[in-house]
Nucleic acid binder design. Sequence first.
DNA 1: CGTCTCGTTGACATAATTCAACATTTGTGG
DNA 2: CCACAAATGTTGAATTATGTCAACGAGACG
Lengths: 242, 242
Amino acid sequence: MSVICEACPLRDKPVFTEMSDSEARFMREFKSGEMRVSPGSVVLMQGSASPQLYTVLSGMGLRHQTLENGRKQVINFLLPGDFLGLQASLMGESSHTVEAVTEMVLCCFQRNRLEKLIAQHPSRAYDLIWVSATDEHFLGETIATLGQRTAQERVAWGLVRLYQRLEAVDLAGDGRAAMPIRQQDLADALGLSLVHTNKTLANLRQRQVVTWRDGQLLIHDLPELARIGLTDLEPLPRRPLI
Amino acid sequence: MSVICEACPLRDKPVFTEMSDSEARFMREFKSGEMRVSPGSVVLMQGSASPQLYTVLSGMGLRHQTLENGRKQVINFLLPGDFLGLQASLMGESSHTVEAVTEMVLCCFQRNRLEKLIAQHPSRAYDLIWVSATDEHFLGETIATLGQRTAQERVAWGLVRLYQRLEAVDLAGDGRAAMPIRQQDLADALGLSLVHTNKTLANLRQRQVVTWRDGQLLIHDLPELARIGLTDLEPLPRRPLI
DNA sequence: CGTCTCGTTGACATAATTCAACATTTGTGG
DNA sequence: CCACAAATGTTGAATTATGTCAACGAGACG
């Protein structure tokens, strides 16, 4: 049974800007269905086109890119509320692969209805642009991280940001969050080797800043973690939900 | 004297998708003026809001972000045809600084006319989304570079991409391009130290792959440079001009 | 002429990677 | 129920890529 957009559980989260009832009703027409994928399965493949756009309804995933020599870079993690597929739709082929980490439920839209949506509901077009701008903001911050932060700073930064994002969709709170990813995934996201990531985590654990075991992240000292990660704790920018 | 959009010299470059006369006429109304800035001046400041959107008409600039400890990361270089200011406009404040490298001429738009533009000319809204998607594509590739490529690969990759982008707007050709940036800027873009960037360039020069002196980039062996940079030489994706 | 900025090079320091081994858990087939 | 393989996490030791420090040259400019 599909979720009706008007009753979308994500709609009420405070990170998302308000969506009017009329917009929600409109999105229901735009929505073409739902997709449920199991852990490890590929939603979108690097190099191939896709006629679909998606919004993550639940579960966690990751976008990654593989270089010619086989090395892998995780571009970012996908959480509920994230919108994906624009690149693959507009530019003909996807530059990255999207993979489910946990079981995920995705809200599906048809690419060919996009033009109609933009024409008929300008406020939604505006929101799409807004979401893209927000995404670019985060990608830019990631670039700054990979380019300028040390391993410790990267790990701390990565954990803070992940925690904030999870918290924003009520998947974390009180310094506690479910972290279904592997250390290898975090390493690939931060441009570090698995071994060094592990040692850095061990160090943070020993200093009683964070503990990450059995898929559970426990942040004992969030301000300290943020300080180490050279990042502030400002709330995430609000963005529209697509 | 301002350029009339219908006669915009960028419009005919093959990297840009075609803009109909009616769209160009519409953009002329949207355009609020031009801005000429001298080398080194700041167009957009990290942390401050801006009511303006810009398209680069000529000249070169760079976007960079400064971390709390003072280290600087160049997010990307700005060339003619690049659109900027969405973040600063939509999200309240800019996450990065935009700085002119050479003298630049920017085409200016008012943020508050954006909604009207989207509502009245859906095809332009579609284009805005397209441009955002293309930008995200490049930022993702940059993330993969900083995370996974070695210093040699980064430098080679950076030079290939810059050359391709310059060529796309007729600022380069035959393996020759004007490169007004400093080695320090390239280093900051690639997340490398100045010294190491310099030594890597010296190595590429000695191997007769590229020469970069006095603001002139000479690529003697483009396929080899691309091979070193682990990148293909596919033409850049076409994108709309805003 | 002195003072900048920018590029260049050598010597040294260090952060991070690679290699290797082992522990734990989980699932699987005999 | 056990044996075994496949993932994942953990740790130590050796290696290497890259950063830091320092000095110098060339050109631009007042």
